[in-house]
Design a protein around this nucleic acid. Sequence first.
RNA 1: GGUUCCGUGGCCGAGUGGCUAGGCAGAGGUCUGCAAAACCUUUUACAGCAGUUCGAAUCUGCUCGGAACCUCCA
Length: 502
Amino acid sequence: MSLKVHNSLTRHKEEFTPITPGHVGMYVCGPTVSGESHLGHARPFITFDIVYRYLTQLGYRVRYVRNITDAGHFEEEGREAEDKISKKAVLEKLEPMELVQKYTNLYHWAMQQFNNLPPSIEPTATGHIVEQIEMIKKIIADGYAYEANGSVYFDVEKYNTDFSAQGKPYGMLSGRVLDDMLETTRELDNQEEKRNKADFALWKKAPPEHIMRWQSPWGEGFPGWHIECSAMSTKYLGDEFDIHGGGMDLQFPHHECEIAQSTVCNHKTPARYWLHNNMITINGKKMGKSYNNVIKLSELFSGNHPSLEQAYHPMVIRFFILQTHYRSTLDFSNEALKASEKGLKRLMEAYDILMRLDAAGFTAAAGATEQDAKCLKLVKEFNEFMDDDFSTAKVLANMFELVPVINGIKDKHVPANALSSSTIEKMQQQMKLFVTDIFGLTNITAVDNEKLSAVMQLLIDIRKEAKQKRDYVTSDKIRNELAAMGIQLKDEKDGNMSYTIA
RNA sequence: GGUUCCGUGGCCGAGUGGCUAGGCAGAGGUCUGCAAAACCUUUUACAGCAGUUCGAAUCUGCUCGGAACCUCCA
């Protein structure tokens, strides 16, 4: 079976075939570092981290490019003519680049907490002003952009007319029809520079108070919203690359404009497969700054937010996101996250037990017992589900079906002759591959401190001895006081004890 | 208003026309010095109406409800 992905461009699930065999170029829209990332931002980064990891697992050499938007070019409405970053810099009395650095660092910290792999290239908008200017010059030269009062706008209507003939109308990604849009677009201020309402800025003239500004053939200014992604994806991935990812809310206008710009410059639709993750909602509404309902990542990890009942470990968030398909909305609630927390712990504990099993001790012939056949099937399906547009939720469901089997082995409910050594090995191999390498999950209670685990072993030994002497005062004291510290002792069936640290 | 999508049991969520998704919570049991953990068993579903079909949560239509985008947004 081969990988199939849902392509937003065609609205169908399609077989994934890379342009260059063995290689994949993937571009994902990264953060705007004018503020701290929130839970909603976490979703695409985790989603495409899984895509990246899975493609790599399939044997592709993946170049994963994820930009950092560190130039504030957000003033399409022109109402206040101010750069978001420069404005905040004044408020916080920081240099713009100082602010950008601060939030870039915070973002990288959060990505590490989530165990997201770093992309192959993480280009910044400010580092590619030259490329963006060159691209704009090219678009003007081809007649698809015009200068007006120090700003440059993309001529959407001309583009739509010319490229519709090639079957590539403006709006083909988001299913919009330009003529309809012209009628429905709202009245905006300062639109007189544009020939048409649907036109978008490639370069904006900087007003005097604007701190971030660059010299250009059209005077001092800064790049428009969309051009950085076109410039950087072209530079690092070429005229045409395999995958472009991002949130569904970027489909229009951001990705639509990217397609238009790149198509004019490179004569090709930039990406073959467009993958869009859905939103995280809270009380049924999208989490986004315009709704004023965001929970920042640092708040989530610390529990320091009015709507949070507790802190949530980054791995819990990661697991929570993997429990649903990336194209579905995912509703945030304390109850749902707590359920994820419990589920993750249960999964990871079983995972640890499985990894410590000695496969040699199992005596069934492969596939001979019903249980053996079932386990083999469950584990085999991991690949099929991932190949089917990254169905992480279904993979997790299968993993959870393995959990009772693994725990049963530990508790001796599942005898050694119920499973074969080859199936145990296959389970270990597949679980390691999917849990650790592809899903990037780590045990949130893991202790990698040798001295602490030595101390814990000592306490466990003392408690065992106390129990043997029926000195329950001592044994309960050890158990209860450890529990008060957040360390849970668990008596196993065979008289052994294990522990988890909350 | 336009475009697109969704409505599954107490909660979150998979679901490709016929086969128990799964997680959390609840109930009963096993184990245990007690408890926890674990294991076993188990109750609640497919918004409504009509249609297609031998058969629909899954296809079609309508109704109701909700969301995203159309403006910065992951």
